[in-house]
């Protein structure tokens, strides 16, 4: 039986993999604000974000047994699912332009995650503010909005090589600031 906040993310996911709906309830309550927050930050519309968030949890329930802790934390796994689902929606309505500026601003505004991730988050936020704006924008376009380097080059009217350099340099500088490889 799931008793509350002391249960680890991994244990909840294991419970879900075994078909424990009570574990699923705790899991949804624990992550819903993070999942919904990411979805709405990417797609912008609350109705679509809610549907994406629902689908994300359904997918987590369905594929809980496929989670591999060696490849990242539960939160990262879940948010990656959220990001992919959100990008799917963006690709369907591809005529709508994305706004990396507002998301970039939101990333540097606040962080309300758990204390164990706070130091990394603060370092990343700090690094995002310090790297050149065009690098940060390219990273956001790629990581959050699912644009390939070629799509960013086309969008910004720059050579493909320049787009790749911006993304790579941005990621490498963030990595240097972070100093670790995964949470």
């Amino acid at each position: 039986m799931v008793t509350g906040v002391e249960v680890s993310d991994e244990a909840l996911l294991a419970g879900m993999a075994a078909g424990d709906q009570e574990a699923a309830g705790v899991f949804v309550r624990r992550f819903k604000a993070r999942v919904y927050g990411l979805a709405i930050a990417i797609v912008g519309l609350s109705t679509e974000a809610e549907e994406i968030a629902q689908d994300t949890f359904l997918r987590a329930w369905r594929y809980a047994g496929a989670y591999d802790p060696r490849r990242g934390s539960v939160a990262t796994w879940l948010l990656t699912i959220t990001r992919n689902a959100s990008v799917d929606v963006l690709r369907i309505r591809r005529e709508v332009p994305v706004d990396p500026g507002s998301l970039l601003a939101a990333l540097s505004l606040s962080y309300d995650g758990g204390t164990e991730q706070l130091a990394d988050a603060l370092r990343l936020r700090s690094a995002l503010a310090e790297i050149p704006r065009e690098q940060a924008t390219s990273v956001v376009l790629s990581v959050f909005f699912g644009l390939t380097a070629a799509e960013i080059a086309s969008r910004d009217g720059i050579p493909l090589g320049t787009a790749k350099t911006r993304i790579r340099s941005g990621l490498l500088r963030l990595r240097d600031k972070l100093g670790v490889t995964d949470g």
Partner: peptide, 15 residues
């Protein structure tokens, strides 16, 4: 790892 590390930085929003 760096790219994935950015995802949790988005502010939380209650659905």
């Amino acid at each position: 790892a760096v790219a994935d590390g950015l995802l949790p930085l988005v502010p939380h929003r209650e659905p």
